[in-house]
Each structure stands twice: as C-alpha cells, then as structure tokens.
Amino acid sequence: MIKTKNIEKTYKKPSVTTPVLRGITLSIHRGEYVAIMGTSGSGKSTLMNILGCLDKPTSGQLELDGTDVYTLDDDALSALRNKKIGFVFQQFFLLERTTALENVLLPLIYADNYPADAKQRAKKALTNVGLEDRMEYLANELSGGQQQRVAIARALINDPDVILADEPTGNLDSGSTHEVLEIFSRLHQEGRTIIVVTHDRAVAEHAQRILELKEGQIIENTTSSKPENSGNH
C-alpha cells in the first residue's frame, strides 16, 4: 500500500542545515493500523506530511498504491490527496462559521465530479462518528472532541485508501481521546488503513504496529501485543 525507500529530509538555512529524516525505508500494507512514535522534534510530522504528499523529501522515493508519487505534477498530487488520503490534524482545521455538514462536504467539491448523493454521504459519515444531531452546527459551536470527529468524517467522505492522523488526540481530553480511538479501531476493523502519529504510548498501543522514530531513523518496529487489533491482514 505505502512504500518508502531511503527518504531523507534536510532543512537548509543559510547558517545551519538540519537533517530531520535520515533514510526512512518502510512499508505499510493495506488494512494495517500503524502508530508512529517519537520524541518531540524527532520528525514524526515531517514524515507524516511526506506520506500524505503534502511535502517532498530531499531525496528518496514514495510509492502509494503502486504509483511512484514523485513522477506526478502538482495537480495530480492534489487529485491523489483528494481520492486516496484522508487527513486528521491535531488542530482539526475546520472552516469556522461553516456547518459540520458543509465541512464534511468540502473534499467532494474538489473531486472530479460532485456526486449527486453528496449530502447523503456526508450525513452518513457524520452519523458514523456519532454526530447525527450536530450536522447543522457551526464548527465553532462544537467542542474539541466533536470538531475532531467532524474532521474524521471529512477524512472519510471520499472513501480514502489511507487515513493519516497527526496527533489526533493531542488537543483532546481523555473522554474525547477515547471516542476518537474507538472510531479508529472500528475503522480498522472495517478494513481501513490507518497511520497515527502520537507521542502517547497509550494511544499507540491501539495500533497493530508501532514505528519509533529517533534521530531521523526508525529504530523500533514492534508489533503491538493487543489481541483485539491483531485480526487483520
């Protein structure tokens, strides 16, 4: 599903060059639930943005569902993000003064053709994350946990191949964290590919596999012992 080969990322400033990723080679299969851990500044977000085709590495290769990503032009990358990737961010990134429903509909606007059943799909996605009674609320009228669930519904609307979540619970209390992790587990059980970045081991434990980033390299590649998450290919 996702394959990287020797990805390196170096930030160059006139005075200093900071190597952040130093040769990441990994492979994530369809249906896997993977957590990426590491200390602050270890390059988790950087790697995540590269996997999500939002950022480009200094060198290395990325293959997504058989496509060599770096042969694509900017428009094709947009289309790829639109179709194959669902993002969930720590800061939610919803449009304020816009209803939950409209926020969820947003990716469909940029799809090749706007489906006739868009509204139904958005409602279904919101129901899926337990927000059937909050559809017409404005984003800024929702709690943090609710906003993050809207963001998850938005990530799901285009039926993506992979969900990339960068610290999805970083801004949430334990209750909301629990709800979000429940949803991820359920999505995983439905066969979705999920990659979660976190520095919270308790969150990472929900995944099948944990990758640990240290000094720009993957130093650990452990399979979680959690029994209920091990049933997938």
Binding site: L54, D75, S78, R81, N82, Q91, F93, L106, Y110
Partner: peptide, 15 residues
Amino acid sequence: REIGLRRAIGARRRD
C-alpha cells in the same frame, strides 16, 4: 491555514 487545509483535501492551485 484554510488554504493549506483546502490544498490538503484536494484543491488544486487553480481552485
């Protein structure tokens, strides 16, 4: 941030 979000979910530059 709105621009970034729109780009992340699939907006092209021309959009």
